[in-house]
Design a protein around this nucleic acid. Structure first.
Lengths: 235, 235
DNA sequence: ACTTAAATCGAACGTTCGTTCGAACTTTTG
DNA sequence: CAAAAGTTCGAACGAACGTTCGATTTAAGT
């Protein structure tokens, strides 16, 4: 057995990928497609065997179980998207801009790796015990980053909204994309990210206060008195 | 065999539910829970047998296949939510108000029938051929209603945004709720619907135009010239 | 070239799957 | 109460499931 048998991909150290690593990555890629199309439970090891061109028994040289295979796919996908996000967020910026970076990073990766992200979103609950908790930790970290970004925005502009609902609504908008996005019909990731960012950012910028009916100028004047906040919402 | 053997529930005519109908509804309810917990593929007929207290063979007196069982659950759930929506939309109202009715109807039903709605959302792709197309028709109708409501809003306020992206973002926000909503932590449906409505409505009311950075007053004045629109966004 | 280790495979294991069938039980009908 | 219809069940079917094992083939080290 070559290199580190449990690694799904070349590590962060500059170790060149061995034959084992490359084959592993190949299998992971094919398995991702199969899981995406048929679902984790619906996909059989024989389906994976067919898709990879490797014998049924041969697969078990790389994975000790079907469950661990799903785990490796999900972990690699999630780790990658978090790593990319952190890199992009290193350059400081306006809170609004940072949230737009978050959305863009998510959607870009989502649409470039649609199968993997669908497997991540759609099979989020099937992993139990050890696998489940390790993945939940990454998920929580990603969630916390988004919460942090929104809280920045909140404090810097004196906004008032439920961070929890906002974050989860945003994830909903973004993750649901795997059910409808069609590259032949829908715009590129950057445009989609901008449109979703427009909707979301304007929404939270106005917080939980009731949205006023048209031509109701009276109470609007009263509420919008304090300074230069909420510019995100005005055209 | 009693009454209409293919009916999942009492029909719209005032026929009193037979013994068959009641047992059928019981089984559907239990099956919904099982499908919700283990997924359609992950749930076995033996799981359903255990949950309903009926023998394995006995189930097949009510359903000709596991696939049809899922179909009946999904069809009943979807039909009900569409029917309720139509009833609520009979009373005309402001476009904004009508969209809020749409959101409230969806979330109320979602949270009151969380298991059924998770099965509807999460197992949306597993039904093929005949079952799939019949369900897709209901789904399309529901989708079209939402498109219609948004177009009303668009025209009545002279807005400019991508209806497709807006509708699908809204569905994402709403449907994702099955992954996170916890009745012990999260507010009641009405509050959640209002918060999501705030975010969404304010977002689309400002359309695709770039959101301006704080304290950028110059171009804002230029864009917000035409009349009393977009009140939905101002506090 | 020969040895050793890595990689792959065919064949099979025991289990569980969805579904069927005829017999038995229960309720309704005459 | 007997007959008919409606309902439930135990037992079994063949197929497909995830996984294992010993043997075989391929690549690496010397």
């Amino acid at each position: 057995m070559a290199s580190v048998p449990t690694a799904a991909q070349g590590s962060s150290t500059a170790t060149p990928p061995t034959r084992y690593d490359k084959r592993m990555a190949e299998i992971l890629a094919h398995a991702t497609e199969v899981f995406c199309e048929k679902g984790y439970e619906g996909a059989s090891m024989r389906d994976l065997s067919r898709a990879t061109g490797m014998s049924l028994a041969g697969l078990y040289y790389y994975f000790e179980s079907k469950e661990r295979l799903l785990f490796l796919i999900q972990k690699h996908t999630f780790t990658t998207i978090v790593a990319r996000l952190k890199k992009r967020l290193e350059h400081l910026g306006d809170p609004e801009e940072r949230i737009r970076i978050f959305i863009l990073n998510h959607l870009e990766y989502f649409l470039a790796n649609q199968a993997a992200m669908k497997v991540l979103s759609h099979e989020a609950e099937v992993l139990k015990n050890g696998f489940g908790t390790e993945l939940a930790a990454i998920k929580r970290e990603y969630y916390r980053i988004c919460v942090g970004l929104l809280d920045e925005l909140k404090h810097s502009r004196g906004l008032d909204f439920s961070t929890r609902i906002a974050v989860l609504s945003l994830f909903g908008m973004m993750n649901w994309i795997y059910t409808w996005h069609n590259p032949r019909v829908d715009a590129d990731p950057a445009s989609t990210a901008r449109e979703m960012g427009d909707i979301f950012l304007c929404g939270v910028a106005n917080g939980r206060k009731a949205i006023l009916k048209k031509t109701d100028f009276n109470s609007r004047r009263k509420e919008s008195s304090n300074g230069n906040h909420n510019a995100a919402c005005k055209r």
